[in-house]
Design a protein around this nucleic acid. Sequence first.
DNA 1: GACAACCTGACC
DNA 2: GGTCAGGTTGTC
Length: 270
Amino acid sequence: MPELPEVETIKRTLSKHLPSRQIKGCEIRLPKLVLPAPEEFSRTVVGQKVLELERRGKFLLLHLSGNLSLLCHFRLTGQLIYLPDGQEEPPHTHLRFILDQGNLLYADLRQFGKLELLKREEISRHPSLLKLGPEPWELTPETFCQLLQRSHRQLKALLLDQSVIAGLGNIYVDESLFRAGLHPTRKASSLSPEEAVKLHHIICEVLKEAIATGGSSVRNYVDGEGKSGTFQERHLVYGRRGQPCPRCKTPIAYTTVASRGTHFCPVCQK
DNA sequence: GACAACCTGACC
DNA sequence: GGTCAGGTTGTC
């Protein structure tokens, strides 16, 4: 499930192939995937060139010629893959951009993702992007600290809130809280300044490490070239329920917090 | 502030 | 054959 490190990896891998490519054709097989409706979407996008790629939180933006931008969100199982000519497309491919060299495919098992074509100036007014909080490393430790101090919410619920801090999802929240030794249900305001600063540092470190290893390939995540990441091999709690805690050997607990499956060590996380 | 809805496949 | 997985939006 693409969170910040996965979307960043998709951006980086696609950036090797897409800039300067021209869109020659567009096949939309799942009408609800796109905005505006398929006919207008297709008519507008065909003939344009890809200029550059940008990531904001879990959103990917493809900036196109003609003052256009394609706003992509993968939700749980979306994939955006550059496919050289003559190669077989992955299952659940719902959209195919035919390029002057190769193809750009959008595949999505659960069909939750969205591809929205916008005029470039509409980006700054888009409701989803307007709501988005800062990237984790754009927050100073002091601002992060104040943010927690002013919230009575559970730590996990706060960190998952994209309007507070952009890019974290279930995997990286669980991993960060374990590494920080903090219980997911702790009230955000109960953290000491030292704990808050440490958590902020750990979040940034975990995300950077995940980007460096190409993201976490749990479920069906692959990058823009269809390749898996390896950060899942470094997960300490996520997906390890019942297995011994790497620090104290207590079985990793699994409960629901903030309506999400939550992995943590009941001994190490306070 | 909690939770259903959107979907399909993997798993019990 | 039922449950669960989880990001976001919309509803209560």
